[in-house]
Design a protein around this nucleic acid. Structure first.
Lengths: 146, 146
DNA sequence: TATTGACCTAAAGTCAGGTTCAGGTGTTAA
DNA sequence: TTAACACCTGAACCTGACTTTAGGTCAATA
């Protein structure tokens, strides 16, 4: 049984953030003693799940929904599964998007490494093929005329 | 030479956003005719680079810095390279972080698929080994006591 | 001539996810 | 007993990236 200050230290989360999460309904079971929050093992577990879901980019309101479903018991397994399936797809799509972006950034790094070696961007443009992949072409165009 | 309305249609970006980008200094070379913005090929190229950098999660102020460096010529190749190198590292780190998160989400999907099959979470816990990897353990703990 | 449509501005509003502030309670330590 | 602490609240504030609003210019069309 811990106070908000102890939990704040243990999890390296500001007290204000913990109170904010509570206000948003993320600790549906939290008890109080004459107004003071009591964090039990259950709240600590909830906090670990919150951190996991937040890392995945899930919004507070969906995390709250999840906590509410947990509180309702086995009736809500389906909804909870669906929530995680959607989040799985969202994270997978985000990784795909970032991989594509990474290709563009890598091209830009190569481009400026060459430009620094050559002292200008002209030589690079002689090296480059006439047709580049579409995404790269965009960056090439920009570089060419800047 | 295009108007803001034409560019808005071509790039599927709201006019208000284009004006916002301009106000933030993202088009350092933009000309006007009696107050009206003229978007040339150069601004279109800039816009493509903005979209690329935004996709990578770069903040507007850093994009603005990049545009300013471009305007300064070959003196700033070093800074521009450094900017992209940092962004490359940031995106790579973000992908790593998301891959880890994905493992946790996949576990949760499996967990609820089992729970739905069994009608409860008890059977799963018999199946699970005593020691799980640390990240998974956290979710297991939570599930066990909810 | 009037009104429609496309442009302009500054300033305020929005949203998420917090943080800060002002003021209040209750318990322990000198 | 008074000061320091740790807790509490509601409300205002903050940041980033826009969006909306209110009001104004200017050219072309009915």
């Amino acid at each position: 049984m811990y106070t908000i200050g102890q939990i704040s230290e243990m999890f390296h989360i500001p007290i204000s953030t913990l109170r904010y999460y509570d206000k948003e309904g993320l600790f549906p079971h939290m008890q109080r003693t004459s107004g003071i929050r009591k964090f039990t093992e259950q709240e600590m577990e909830t906090l670990r799940v919150i951190e996991c879901l937040k890392k995945s980019g899930m919004e507070i309101k969906n995390i709250k929904q999840f906590m509410a479903w947990c509180a309702l018991g086995s009736e809500t397994y389906g909804q909870r599964l669906e929530l995680f399936q959607k989040q799985k797809e969202a994270v997978e799509a985000e990784i795909q998007r970032l991989e594509k972006t990474l290709d563009m950034i890598r091209f830009k790094c190569w481009y400026y490494e060459q430009a620094i070696q050559d002292g200008n961007e002209d030589h690079i443009h002689e090296l480059l093929p006439d047709r580049l992949p579409e995404d790269i072409q965009l960056l090439y165009d920009h570089a060419h005329k800047e």
